[in-house]
Amino acid sequence: MMKISARNQLPGKVTAIQPGAVNGSVKVDIGNGVLITANITEEAIAELALAEGDQVTILVKASDVLIGK
């Protein structure tokens, strides 16, 4: 297994994949009704062979997290 520096790792299940011209949208259910959407390249979706129902890990590494109201 590859070691990574991201400490925010959330297991979940792919619930939907919406293809796009360059980037696709992947929705992941991490439990308790919480969905996370990741926009990743179509190439990455293909390389990972992502499909609905797959168990995946969401990795969050951000230098900034912004909230507005």
Rank of each mutant, 00 (worst) to 15 (best):
10 L>H: 01
35 L>M: 15
7 R>C: 03
65 V>G: 09
35 L>R: 15
28 V>G: 08
60 V>Q: 00
48 L>N: 03
14 V>F: 05
24 G>T: 09
13 K>Q: 10
1 M>I: 02
36 I>H: 08
9 Q>T: 11
37 T>Q: 13
14 V>M: 01
43 E>Y: 07
53 G>Q: 00
64 D>H: 06
44 A>P: 08
7 R>S: 08
2 M>W: 08
41 T>M: 10
68 G>F: 15
24 G>N: 07
53 G>D: 03
33 G>I: 11
62 A>F: 01
65 V>P: 05
69 K>Y: 15
5 S>M: 05
27 K>G: 05
62 A>S: 15
8 N>A: 09
61 K>E: 10
37 T>W: 09
44 A>M: 11
12 G>W: 02
20 G>W: 03
20 G>R: 02
52 E>W: 00
21 A>Q: 13
16 A>I: 07
59 L>W: 01
44 A>E: 04
26 V>P: 03
19 P>A: 11
44 A>I: 09
22 V>H: 06
57 T>E: 08
26 V>N: 05
60 V>E: 00
9 Q>E: 08
43 E>P: 02
26 V>G: 04
27 K>V: 13
56 V>C: 07
42 E>Q: 13
14 V>I: 09
58 I>W: 03
43 E>N: 13
16 A>F: 10
23 N>R: 00
7 R>M: 13
37 T>R: 13
68 G>K: 08
1 M>S: 14
49 A>W: 00
14 V>N: 00
8 N>E: 02
69 K>I: 15
14 V>G: 04
60 V>C: 04
58 I>Q: 07
20 G>C: 05
60 V>G: 04
33 G>P: 14
19 P>L: 08
35 L>W: 11
6 A>M: 07
50 L>T: 01
56 V>E: 06
28 V>K: 00
9 Q>W: 06
61 K>Y: 06
30 I>R: 05
15 T>Y: 00
22 V>C: 11
26 V>D: 06
11 P>S: 10
54 D>I: 00
56 V>W: 07
2 M>P: 12
54 D>T: 01
14 V>S: 01
54 D>F: 02
64 D>Y: 06
5 S>K: 12
33 G>F: 14
38 A>D: 09
10 L>T: 05
66 L>S: 12
15 T>M: 01
31 G>P: 12
69 K>R: 10
56 V>M: 06
2 M>K: 09
16 A>M: 09
63 S>A: 13
43 E>T: 10
41 T>F: 11
13 K>R: 14
6 A>G: 04
59 L>D: 00
35 L>H: 14
50 L>W: 00
20 G>I: 08
42 E>K: 03
64 D>V: 14
3 K>L: 12
25 S>N: 09
28 V>C: 07
28 V>W: 05
53 G>K: 00
57 T>R: 06
56 V>N: 09
34 V>Q: 10
50 L>V: 06
44 A>W: 01
47 E>G: 05
10 L>V: 07
18 Q>H: 13
44 A>C: 10
1 M>C: 08
1 M>Q: 11
48 L>V: 05
40 I>H: 07
11 P>R: 07
51 A>R: 03
33 G>H: 15
50 L>Y: 02
16 A>S: 14
62 A>R: 07
3 K>M: 12
67 I>A: 14
